[in-house]
Design a protein around this nucleic acid. Structure first.
Lengths: 136, 136
DNA sequence: TTCGTTGCGTTATGCTATAACGTGTGGCAT
DNA sequence: ATGCCACACGTTATAGCATAACGCAACGAA
C-alpha cells in the first residue's frame, strides 16, 4: 500500500485533527474549516473516508468522533504497516482518548474468529471511564 | 442489584428486541410498536435506558442499534450477576450479531486500566466482518 | 397530607451521515 | 490531439439517530 499524497481538503481535515487535543466530530471539523471555504458536511466526510482508509485517522464509534492516529509520527501508518487492532481509553470527564495496542487481545479475537470461521474486517475496542486526573 | 419489574413500555420494547433476529435501531423499534400506541422516539429511548441499565439489552455502538442480551435466559442478567465485558461479532452481510465473552481479554483491558489508573465504566468490543455463511 | 420520585406523553429541536446531482481536472491509451 | 475514465470537489436536499423541555399522573414515604 503506497500512501498517495493528500489532497487539499484531506490535508485541511487532517491538520484540524492533528491540532485537536481530543476526538472531535465531523461537524466540529466543518466549523473549524469554514474560514477555509468548507460549507457542507460532505466535504468533511469525504476527506475523512480517505484518511480512515489510509489509517491516518481513527473513528471512535462510541463518540461518533474522529481522532488522528497516535502513531502518525512513527511512519508506520504512512508506510501502510498494518499494526494490529487499535484500542482506546476515553475519559468521559476531560474527553481525552488514549490509543493503545495489545497483541494478546488481538490474538484472542483472532482465535475466536478463526474458530467460528468469521472473517473480521474492522474491530472496535473502546473503554469509557475516567482518567487518573478526572477520577481524583 | 434487584431487578425491578418492567413497566409496560419497557416490556414492549424488550419483547420487540427479543423477537428480532438482528440488532435493530430505536426507530425500527418505534415503528414496530406504533400499533401498540407508541408515537415518539423518546418512548423507545426511555425504555432502552432502563433496559440497558438492567443489563437486559446491549447497545452496538458501531451500528447505533440495540440487541437483547444473549444470556437473558441464563438468569445471570436478571440476577444482576456482573459478567465481564460483552463482545460482539457483527456480520455486515446478514446483519447478525454474535455475543461472546472472553475473560482473558477482560484481564488485559483491566491490566491496562490499572497500570494507567484509568477507571473503566463501560467497554465496547465489536468485530465487524463476514460470518461463515456470508463469506462463502 | 405533602412531597419527592418515577414513568409517561407531546412537541420541538439538534446532531450525525448520506443520496443524488453536476462540474472540473489530470492521466493515459489510442 | 482526442476521447475516455477516474477522481476530487461543490451543492442541495434528505435520511437517520438522539435529546431538551414542558406538563401530567400514579405511587410511596415522611
Amino acid at each position: 500500500m503506497i500512501a498517495p499524497a493528500l489532497t487539499k481538503n484531506q490535508s485541511l481535515v487532517f491538520d484540524v485533527l492533528t491540532r485537536a487535543e481530543q476526538p472531535i466530530s465531523a461537524y466540529t471539523i466543518l466549523d473549524r474549516l469554514r474560514e477555509h471555504g468548507f460549507r457542507a458536511p460532505l466535504q468533511v466526510y469525504r476527506a475523512l473516508d480517505k484518511l480512515l482508509e489510509a489509517g491516518l485517522v481513527h473513528r471512535l464509534e462510541s463518540l461518533n468522533a474522529f481522532v488522528a492516529c497516535a502513531h502518525r509520527n512513527s511512519s508506520c501508518c504512512a508506510a501502510g504497516h498494518a499494526h494490529g487492532t487499535v484500542a482506546f481509553a476515553i475519559c468521559t470527564g476531560c474527553g481525552q482518548a488514549s490509543e493503545f495496542h495489545d497483541s494478546e487481545i488481538d490474538g484472542r479475537l483472532n482465535a475466536w474468529s478463526k474458530a467460528r470461521r468469521f472473517r473480521p474486517e474492522k474491530t472496535t475496542i473502546e473503554i469509557r471511564g475516567l482518567c487518573e486526573k478526572c477520577a481524583a
